[in-house]
Amino acid sequence: MNILVVLAVVAAFGLLRFGRVSLLVWAGAWWVGIYVLLRFGFTAPIPASVVSLYMGIVSIAILAYVSSSQERRDEISRPLVRFMTDKRYTAFLAATVVAIPALAAANVYVQMNVPLQPPLFSRTVHPASPSEITVHDKKIDLDAGENPFRHLEASSPTEFRTHVENGRKVYYRNCVFCHGDNLAGNGMFVHGLDPIPTNFTDKGTLPMLRETFLFWRIAKGGPGLPEEGGPWDTAMPAWEKFLKEEEMWEAILFLYDSTGQRPRAKEEAAK
């Protein structure tokens, strides 16, 4: 929730409450207030079609309310009738009569001149991995498996550093062109790629993934993705065509080491 917007709407309602305004103003205020809340009150934007659905319901509710008794009907219609009949308002009424069709026509123009948009495919960025893959004739268990070099971090730090350094070499000779020198997904070819390469420095990416998941994405690349991942669009190579299995595990060590992040731990077996 966007607290500032919510507070502003509440404050506006408070002012109206003390201002003793007419029912017509209240009806308008509820409509506008709820629209503002739906449109700007939520941090994650609500799709326009959903907002218009809600506003339709709100409109019906307000109409039902104001027409529910003779008194309310009168209170609503009185200012409207005065606006349309009182000579004082003739000029204003004329302006309104012209303005509404003009706005509607302008809206039609905008709707008909929306810039051409190629069809959009909303791909799943990190689809579920299979539980087992075969790389270079070797079966790799992605659920129960681990990075074969990870245990060295505690048992043999020097050996571990060697593997990290090997991973760095693999990265800068292969991955750098798309994922970039500082691992931020902004390599020299990024302007020609869609989808864009993963940004490894993003705090919400590497720490959320297991090393075996990365191994699957690296070894099988774009073509190894399921349909929802859009395997036909991504330029991520199936690195098993270029790299040995150890090199891929070492590159994964480097990704975590260089960005100072930790891989996601293995899920506890469901009880």
């Binding site: 062109f177 302007h191 020609g192």
Partner: peptide, 10 residues
């Protein structure tokens, strides 16, 4: 359209 290197297939 930008042209990039073919670095996906050997």
């Amino acid at each position: 359209f930008p042209i990039i290197g073919q670095i996906t297939e050997p």
